[in-house]
Design a protein around this nucleic acid. Structure first.
Lengths: 209, 209
DNA sequence: GTCTATACCTGGATAGAC
DNA sequence: GTCTATCCAGGTATAGAC
């Protein structure tokens, strides 16, 4: 899933500015993923980005602004990937097929934009609400997408009636999101994880009886 | 944990010390859960514990030492609960029954020792390895417990042969651990979450075909 | 055991030269 | 656009009175 050259939300600026901004975000995402919000310093971000700490303020007004930008990009990478994958399906695709597609796209995006998505997940519960205005909204939109998809499937009898979607959804997304903490690309392709996750989700772990 | 009776004339590590130590840990766990490692300050811990920052150093040598103690207690609460629940089962309990019991005990412990377990989970990936020596070992022991339980079940044909336990295990534990981020005790009892998690794990979400 | 006082350092942020 | 230099608040940790 390749990035659009210019995210719609970012105002157009010169090429050099764009580049540094991107490097700062990359560096911030990397540090946030590894150390969390409180231990990530502007000085260390600057060092990784190859500039001086003071220079950051040409691109961002504050540390919080960097935070929010990183988290937004993390969530957006996932939501865009899932939406696009769902939109690509034929209109008459089954609920089962839609869920399978969403799980695959979610995992693929999550694990290929590792630093941003991991930073987003890890940092999310750690920062005050005021510091994550933009990412918060996106995140809620994304949750709603899943909730609606699952509810629709259940309404059509495509998933069991006796399950509570408000428990199912966080259990499922939690399982997927946690992969950023343990997945190792050198061990297995993402597809293997996705395939087994879907299989378990649909059929459970007991042998066919 | 009650103190053994000790003659009044013999100095010992008394009740007062134990108490403050406990309050410091409680406060630390609460802050760590909410803010993560980097944003949790000794001053704020002291404030919540109702003492002065300097006084902490009578009980702990450094911030890292508090950290490790909190995380260790978080992991220990869960591992102890799961072990005890498994030990209470009859010797001939089925694999299915054992897994069900472990999931229930894990969730129950996780969500009832909220601050310690949440702090442990959140902080775990955020601090250098040197700061979590004691908790790290425990955590590995706990993972091994699950891995063995699942492998044994699979060897006996109690769970599907075509699933990879090294994928199954982190997917499952991730799903359970993530509950600390969304579970609200005012909405539903823990038992409901546990029951549905086990049900989904065993049978999947598709309707009986 | 806890306090007060304080040393020392590193954090985010700003100003002005280039 | 980036640098250097710097301000000041707040961090961990220590010392010594009580």
């Amino acid at each position: 899933m390749s990035e659009p050259a210019t995210p719609a939300s970012v105002p157009r600026r010169g090429r050099k500015s764009e580049m540094s901004r991107g490097q700062i975000l990359d560096a911030a995402a990397r540090m946030l993923r590894r150390q969390g919000y409180g231990s990530t310093t502007l000085r260390s971000i600057a060092e990784v980005a190859g500039i001086q700490a003071g220079s950051i303020y040409y691109h961002f007004a504050s540390k919080d602004e960097i935070m929010d930008a990183v988290m937004e990009r993390g969530v957006r990478a996932v939501i865009d990937a899932v939406r696009e994958a769902l939109d690509t399906l034929p209109n008459d695709a089954s609920h089962q097929r839609r869920i399978e597609t969403a799980v695959g796209a979610h995992l693929q995006a999550l694990l290929s934009h590792g630093d941003y998505t991991s930073a987003s997940i890890r940092t999310y519960g750690e920062v005050p609400v005021a510091f994550k205005q933009k990412s918060l909204q996106l995140q809620q939109t994304y949750v709603a997408l899943w909730q609606d998809m699952l509810a629709a499937a259940q309404a059509d009898g495509a998933i069991r009636q006796d399950l509570d979607p408000h428990i199912l959804r966080p259990l499922l997304l939690g399982s997927l999101n946690w992969t950023v903490e343990w997945y190792d690309p050198n061990q297995r392709p993402v597809e293997d994880i996705a395939a087994q996750a879907v299989d378990m989700l649909f059929h459970g772990i007991l042998p066919d009886s």
